[in-house]
């Protein structure tokens, strides 16, 4: 704890915490994406998978227990990630009280790097909505607990919903395009020999997440999943 605190005390440490939680997100999102793709195997398999999520860890863990462990880890990660993001954001804003009248020419920075904070906000809003949509169900017209597959199919019947997801995934995609690369830099994972692979890795993850996630709503719209 003392060690985490000494990280929390410095701006660089805060940034490292962001990177660590960021990496947790990445792993979760990739796993989640993989799970979603089961939708193509039809209702039974998918709901079975949703069921599995709750049964996993048995017999050591009871029904839904291990899932809750994951949820708590995720919640904590989001808490840290967002808190750090806000603190660092404020720090950087106060670091240049008088901004350039002519504005800075950007030479190296990317659209993704410059929008990462707003991208984060979009993602945050999305996740909240998304939970209400598929997990809690309040944001879902005909939500049936446990019937993940049906919820999903019905959920994506409406255009606006699909659009909202597309936007969110776009934001996430950009977030990761800079984020994954940035996290490696922040965690000091750099080496003259491997540095050239850092950017491609970020591109692959970002693209995979966008495509991987979008296929499901797309398929629903296209009627492949019904």
């Amino acid at each position: 704890m003392r060690r985490v605190l000494s990280l929390y005390r410095s701006s660089v440490g805060k940034k490292i915490l962001m990177a660590v939680t960021g990496v947790i997100f990445v792993l979760f999102v990739l796993a989640h994406m993989y799970g979603n793709l089961k939708a193509f195997y039809g209702s039974e398999k998918f709901n079975h998978y949703a069921e599995f999520l709750r049964e996993m860890g048995a017999p050591i863990f009871g029904h839904g227990q291990l899932l809750w462990v994951f949820r708590i880890v995720l919640l904590a990660a989001v808490g840290i990630h967002v808190l750090m993001a806000i603190q660092l954001w404020l720090l950087s804003r106060s670091a240049r009280p008088v901004s350039y009248v002519k504005g800075l020419q950007s030479e190296e920075s990317t659209y993704a790097s410059r929008t990462i904070r707003w991208g984060g906000v979009i993602i945050f809003v999305f996740v909240v909505y998304h939970l209400l949509h598929f997990t809690i169900g309040t944001a879902h017209p005909s939500f049936v607990p446990g019937a993940a597959y049906e919820n999903l199919v019905i959920g994506f019947q409406s255009w606006p919903v699909v659009l909202a997801y597309a936007v969110a995934l776009g934001a996430l995609c950009l977030h990761l395009y800079h984020g994954v690369w940035s996290a490696l830099q922040t965690l000091g994972a750099n080496h003259v020999r491997y540095n050239k692979y850092r950017r491609p890795l970020a591109v692959i993850v970002a693209a995979a997440v966008f495509v991987g996630f979008m296929t499901v709503p797309a398929a629903v719209v296209a009627g492949i999943i019904a």
Binding site: R9, S10, S11, V12, K14, K15, L88, L91, S92, R93, S94, A95, R96, L104, S106, E107, E108, S109, S113, R114, I116, H178, W181, S182, Q185, T186
Partner: peptide, 20 residues
């Protein structure tokens, strides 16, 4: 790094403008 923070510099988000 502690002194850097104290002086009121911002936080690096790895934009890379500095190197340029």
């Amino acid at each position: 790094v502690a002194q850097m923070d104290e002086e009121g510099f911002g936080n690096c988000t790895n934009h890379g403008e500095c190197e340029a």
